[in-house]
């Protein structure tokens, strides 16, 4: 089975904290890591390769430093990787991202199965997997928590829903996004890490992928960020005085004002 795993390099959220005074993002030397949810995608792919054999390719779009993440993926046991990198890709929303990823998948000659994490911890959109499936005209199952059956032409998977789960048969080629229940990500392996030392990720830009500038990046995006602001709250310390009833009501008002509790607009 030929499997493509989509990975995203994200800032380590543990190192992204809000400055309590200035309300700006503080970072302690932005450690860049593999999106934690994508590690579950990687684990799902490694499990599948153990079961049915085959090849795993890691695909990512990002700045040049994302090559380091692909090297890390090799350490986990991935066979090869492709980095989609171009200044033109910057500022992409999920529409423009899936345009580049779909071109990347074609560049790799397609796959029997594409595996994505359920979402990225920086964007939290959960849109890229389903969007990519649509771009490629593939059937999809999102939020897969277990793979019951793996055959050459179909998978039987468990899809997590809000009220339980469903057992779904997915014809291949197809795409799944996976959740953490798929299995705890294994550690990197020593042999993988030794291979990773020598690994140089192939890089493809917009031209190599046959993409025009207005299809990718900020220019190729439908959505625009018009404002970024800090939510209130974090960092401050306050004792709420008074009788219990008043304090109880006051704390709810504070949490609502801080947008920690959301009531609606």
């Amino acid at each position: 089975m030929k499997i493509i795993v989509c990975l995203k390099q994200v800032p380590d959220t543990a190192s992204v904290k809000l400055d309590p005074v200035t309300h700006t993002l503080k970072r302690e030397g932005v450690a860049a890591v593999i999106n934690p949810f994508d590690l579950f995608a990687l684990e799902a792919a490694l499990q599948l390769r153990e079961r049915v054999g085959g090849q795993i390719l890691a695909l990512t779009m990002g700045p040049p430093q994302a090559a380091e993440m692909l090297r890390e993926a090799i350490g986990y046991g991935v066979d090869d990787g492709l980095l989609l990198s171009d200044r033109a890709f910057a500022g992409a929303d999920t529409w423009a991202t899936t345009a580049a990823l779909a071109a990347g998948v074609r560049h790799l000659g397609g796959a029997d199965l594409i595996v994505c994490g359920k979402q990225a911890v920086d964007g939290d959109t959960a849109q890229v997997g389903p969007g990519l499936a649509m771009r490629l005209g593939l059937p999809q199952v999102a939020f897969v928590k277990a793979i019951r059956e793996a055959a050459a032409d179909h998978l039987v998977v468990e899809r997590q829903m809000d009220d339980g789960y469903e057992v779904v048969s997915l014809p291949l080629p197809g795409l799944i996004t996976v959740v953490r229940e798929i299995g705890e990500p294994r550690p990197p392996s020593l042999k993988g890490k030794m291979r990773a030392k020598k690994f140089e990720a192939p890089v493809a830009g917009a031209a190599a992928l046959g993409l025009a500038e207005d299809q990718v990046g900020l220019r190729g995006s439908f959505t625009q960020v018009v404002e970024v602001f800090a939510p209130g709250a974090a960092g401050q310390r306050e004792m709420l005085p008074g009788p219990a009833e008043a304090a109880g009501r006051a704390v709810i008002d504070r949490l609502v004002a801080d947008k920690v509790i959301l009531l609606g607009s």
Binding site: P11, T13, V16, K17, L18, L25, V121, D122, G123, D124, F222, T223, Q224, V225, V226, E227, V228, F229, A230, P231, K259
Partner: peptide, 16 residues
């Protein structure tokens, strides 16, 4: 919310 709730972003879709 973006970045795990560390910042809020307002987003528009002007052209589609």
């Amino acid at each position: 919310p973006a970045f795990g709730g560390n910042i809020m972003a307002t987003i528009i879709c002007p052209d589609a």
